[in-house]
Amino acid sequence: MKKLLFALTLITVLFSNAQNRFDNVEIITHEVNQNVYMLEGAGGNILLQVGESEVVMIDSQYAPLSDKLKKEIARITDKPLTYLINTHHHGDHTGGNENFNTDQVTIIAHTNVMKRLTESEKSKGFLPEKVLEEAYELSLVDENNLIIHVHHAHTDGDSFVYLTKNNVVHTGDVYFNGSYPFIDLNSGGSITGYINAQKQILTTINEKTKIVPGHGAIASYNDLADYIPMLVDLKTQIQKEISDGKTREQVEKNNSITKKYDAEGFGDGYISPEKIRTIIYDSLILEATHK
């Protein structure tokens, strides 16, 4: 009986902590361009595009933050939401979907986002009503948005969104500004696909484009351009370690691989230096297995 009571108490405490961790989260708005805003809270960055008669929201963060987000959005515009685009399926980007979904809102995402949200038994209100395979042009009254799928990058369902007139791109988690990226290998991500996705973004945008990353501060073309060589360098170094017969544990403990970038603060985020080394190691092993 005591064990049961302890278990129930533990569950209650864990649930309460999960709820309370959002209580002190503040939604901070950054103006990216005229009528384009980045909303920072907890989880992935949200982009809000306020058009002449349509409002587009990219990603929805966690469900417990929806009321705070709605309040902040109402401060920015009194126009109703028209489209909600998900850059991928992770809960810190899709958790609020159902809370923002109305009869006037169309949720758009890649087909693999639909697949993964369905597999996780999300209710209908979470799910995309419009799915894309490769690319989709969202035609608005005053602008066209390009939603472009990138293959096996952060996940297998990533898309970046390019606001052509405003010259702003939301990369989703294909870019973590200022920190090592999380690459979800269990959801079809890979280091090679991640690098290729960033290169594809660069060829789509231009040097004046403002970048809203999945996580981190608003960035520039050059910020992303400088990020790619770091990933290429880490991939090259770890591939050499693999070719030399080094084990996963040896690579995990080899601080010299990431030392240069650790000193620049890239390991201070969600992904530690040890974690990025093992992610890339595991990715390269998987890629070699599937060749």
Rank of each mutant, 00 (worst) to 15 (best):
M1G: 02
K2V: 07
L5W: 04
L5P: 05
T9A: 13
T9V: 12
L10G: 04
I11M: 10
S16D: 08
N17R: 02
A18T: 07
A18F: 06
N24A: 10
V25C: 11
E26W: 02
N33E: 05
N33S: 10
N33Q: 02
N35H: 14
A42R: 09
L47I: 14
G51I: 12
S53P: 05
V56G: 11
M57V: 07
D67T: 07
I73R: 08
L81R: 06
Y83V: 12
H88Y: 05
H90Y: 10
D92R: 07
G95D: 00
G96P: 08
N97Q: 11
V105I: 15
I107M: 04
M114K: 04
M114T: 02
E119V: 01
E119C: 00
F126D: 14
L127V: 11
E129W: 01
K130Y: 14
V131M: 09
E133G: 00
A135W: 00
L140T: 14
D142E: 15
E143D: 15
V150E: 01
H152K: 03
H154N: 11
T155K: 10
D156K: 09
D158F: 09
D158H: 10
L163K: 12
V174W: 03
F176C: 14
N177S: 15
S179R: 14
S179F: 15
Y180R: 13
P181F: 01
P181R: 05
I183H: 01
D184T: 01
D184P: 07
N186D: 04
G188Q: 12
G193K: 05
T204H: 12
N206Q: 14
K208N: 09
T209V: 03
T209A: 00
V212N: 08
G214Q: 00
A219R: 01
A225S: 02
Y227H: 03
L231E: 00
V232I: 02
Q237I: 06
Q239Y: 08
E252D: 13
K253V: 13
K253F: 13
K253T: 15
N254T: 09
D262E: 15
F266R: 09
I271H: 09
R277S: 05
D282A: 03
I285L: 05
I285M: 02
L286M: 15
K291M: 01
